[in-house]
């Protein structure tokens, strides 16, 4: 976990509670109890949990700061900070066109990034398989904040019009059979050919790990920024830990 690397570089140590399912829930302990106990062992808690709202609950019971490192299909704000940082390295964030591609329903990185971008007057372009669109309540909230959201149904019509291409994983489990998964996955695959005519300053991001979403040949192109993005995770997480523990 990149938070462990970040903590080590700050000169601290980290304790891993391991997978919550494997550890506490199997033993029947509530998250509230786990968090109260761990508060006595650590100066901050970083939590990734399969249920939505878990981090908020943890923060209510913890006596030390809590960082949400992903809650179910909810939010992933720490990823968003490093996404924004990576975008900021290439361009000013205001009023840019950002495409979110892939599983936008369960993709918490996409939810958090979309929410953050609504603060920058960015325009959102979305492309997702049927049934995996942005949650209706989130889309409504973004529109309330004045965000312009354009839904697309073809990847070709997006490429030329955006500054950032944010690609997320499409999980096989979301489909009834492998045939329908491969059919969708191949329609969403980013290839060098597809990128012909892209804006010269386009950057491609992906929260990694990727499976087939991005052709490895794209790695060589100047657009590819996902490994840089991943590396940025360490300093950004160091900054977050410092911020909450000071």
């Amino acid at each position: 976990m990149s938070f462990e690397s970040a903590m080590a570089r700050l000169g601290g140590t980290s304790l891993s509670v391991g997978s919550i399912e494997a550890c506490s829930i199997a033993k029947g302990e509530t998250l509230a109890d786990t968090v109260r106990v761990v508060s006595g062992y650590a100066d901050a808690i970083v939590i990734r949990h399969p249920k939505e709202g878990a981090a908020r609950l943890a923060a209510e019971f913890a006596t030390v700061p809590v960082i949400n490192a992903g809650d179910g299909a909810g939010q992933h704000p720490s990823q968003t900070l490093l996404d924004l940082y990576t975008i900021r390295q290439s361009m000013a964030i205001d009023k840019i066109d950002v495409a979110l591609i892939g599983d936008l329903r369960y993709g918490r990185t996409a939810h958090s990034l979309a929410s953050a971008l609504s603060l920058y007057n960015a325009r959102l372009h979305t492309l997702s398989p049927k049934g995996l669109e942005l949650p209706v309540t989130l889309a409504a909230e973004l529109c309330d904040k004045g965000m312009d959201i354009v839904e697309h149904d073809n990847i070709n019509e997006i490429i030329r019009d955006v500054d950032v291409l944010y690609v997320t994983r499409i999980q096989r489990e979301r489909f009834p059979d492998s045939a329908s998964y491969f059919n969708v996955a191949s329609n969403y695959r980013i290839t060098p050919e597809l990128l012909c005519g892209a804006r010269s300053h386009l950057i491609i991001l992906h929260p990694l790990p990727r499976i087939d979403e991005i052709d490895p040949r794209v790695d060589e192109l100047p657009y590819a920024r996902y490994f840089e993005q991943s590396r940025n995770g360490v300093p950004v997480r160091m900054a977050m830990l410092m911020e909450v523990m000071q």
Binding site: P50, K51, E52
Partner: peptide
């Protein structure tokens, strides 16, 4: 109504 919500578990809330 969200089945994945932490409030629908056995947490003391």
């Amino acid at each position: 109504p969200n089945p994945g919500c932490i409030s629908n578990t056995n947490e003391p809330i």
